[in-house]
Nucleic acid binder design. Structure first.
Lengths: 270, 270
DNA sequence: ATAGCCAGTTTCGCCTTGCGGAACAACGGG
DNA sequence: CCCGTTGTTCCGCAAGGCGAAACTGGCTAT
């Protein structure tokens, strides 16, 4: 089927990965010579790879005992990946159910560097064109997803909506820091965010955040639909359904809710 | 302190690790050009690294959408590492306590390729010399650690003690498959393994296994001491203490015990 | 339809730089 | 104290990694 895709394989990388794999597969920390005799690679070569892998902290070099084991860098990566995978796996079934209930698109997004980025998306079988793809970025201030997350961020992240970042996307986009801050208060009070044609004309979204065990808003989920389809009664239903789903997911992520609060811990604001 | 240790850094490896890290750090699958514009590396180069990382299945290449994400190989490694780390972390405090109670060496070992390998070790402040180090391998049939694990392995692993592997280590080492099998029955019945001078003259060990949630004997822990120090009453105490500690650890590893059984699930033997 | 654009793939020749044998140093055990 | 073993450094060769640029194929906009 494919030609020879190993034309593009870079040997040093491939061999270094073998070394990494071997080290991580052992149940104990290993010595240089152990690796060499196992992988049948020249000693000098393995030595260099180990130095490189150590420098990248994928591998830990125990100087005293001259043994190599899994490094903190590798573990950090693995942990970050696990966290996201878990989030996606927990959220997806709820997203499918919401999509089926309302027959509208449901999005999952996280905050990344002043933007929200779409991480998952479930779409109904309608002709209406999709407006975003997994991996796309949108501004924080013009999306319900962004608002839902930012509202529950600690105060230290206020930099996210300083004046010059409030770029107008449509005629309705909020561009004043004051108005935005007021909306944030609403979001915190009600537990969900609304956006109406502020990001794309004629499109409205309802967004709700998920919290981890530290009360941090890891991600948000939104239902987005053409404004004219979202009659007031549907909107009310959708808000409830989204909030309930988000609460279930948050609880599975380890968040604890006290009483009827929307956020598990008191968010760090006035 | 160190001279210039970056003399031995292999650029392709280092840069490929950057690519891997970047891909894994993103909350979504990324495209080639995204990586390129982020890492400021030539497109061709990144392309080659991605091919290589994919070939090693550290990265997954979604052919349809031309996007790259974390691969199954990486996740498998991470998982294996987590499992071991967890084992060590759970066992260590119990090992320290056992060591303090009996003032003897406590070992932790796993099965690896027909040998048991020491994964952790806690030693008392005595003059008596240590007889093993973390990373050392010993035969399965001459150690209490090996016996404790093998006894609870499914029948399919009987190959581990075929005749020619029963090498004598001391005059007391069991060398007949028949005698060994009988001991395995005893171990299963009593829930612990004993070894008296079969691996090293004058040294005795008591070994107990840990089980994971699937009822598989992940590892074993042993108390080892000079034979003459281990009077019968001390031995009885030690056996109880070891079995209790092992049960606590197994439960934390997800194993479920029914009634007073030594193994969480009925091991696959007659 | 068709042209233009953009992302991914392939080619190709230069010359960097990775390679590995071998010599060296540093332990550690007998 | 000496030998064997393991980790580190050196060095010259050429393998093969590199990246500019050309190419392809799919998508959009007109």
């Amino acid at each position: 089927m494919n030609k020879r895709r190993d034309d593009y394989i870079v040997q040093p990388v491939m061999k270094a990965l073998q070394v990494l794999e071997h080290v991580a597969r052992q149940s104990h920390e290993v010595t240089l010579t152990e690796i060499v005799s196992e992988l049948k690679l020249p000693k000098t070569t393995v030595f260099r790879y180990l130095q490189t892998l150590s420098a990248a902290s994928f591998i830990h070099h125990d100087q005293k005992r001259d043994r190599y084991g899994v490094g903190v860098g590798f573990r950090a990566l693995a942990k970050a990946d696990r966290k996201l995978q878990r989030l996606r796996n927990l959220a997806h079934p709820e997203m499918v159910e919401l999509m089926e209930t309302f027959n509208e698109t449901v999005n999952l997004a996280v905050l990344s560097d002043r933007y929200i980025v779409y991480v998952d998306m479930v779409e109904p079988n309608r002709a209406m064109r999709i407006h975003a793809r997994v991996g796309d970025r949108h501004p924080v201030h013009s999306t319900s997803l962004g608002k839902a997350i930012v509202a529950f961020l600690p105060d230290s992240r206020e930099d996210l909506f300083q004046g010059d970042w409030l770029r107008p996307m449509t005629i309705k986009t909020l561009t004043s820091a004051k108005a935005f801050r007021r909306q944030m208060d609403d979001v915190r009070r009600r537990g969900y965010a609304i956006e109406m044609g502020e990001n794309e004309d004629g499109l409205m979204c309802i967004g709700v955040p998920f919290f981890d065990s530290a009360g941090y808003p890891l991600a948000a989920m939104s239902l987005s639909a053409p404004e004219r389809r979202m009659k007031p009664d549907v909107t009310v239903h959708a808000v409830e359904a989204l909030k309930n789903a988000a609460r279930r997911i948050s609880i599975q992520l380890g968040a604890r809710f006290e009483g009827g609060a929307f956020a598990p811990l008191e968010p760090a604001h006035s």
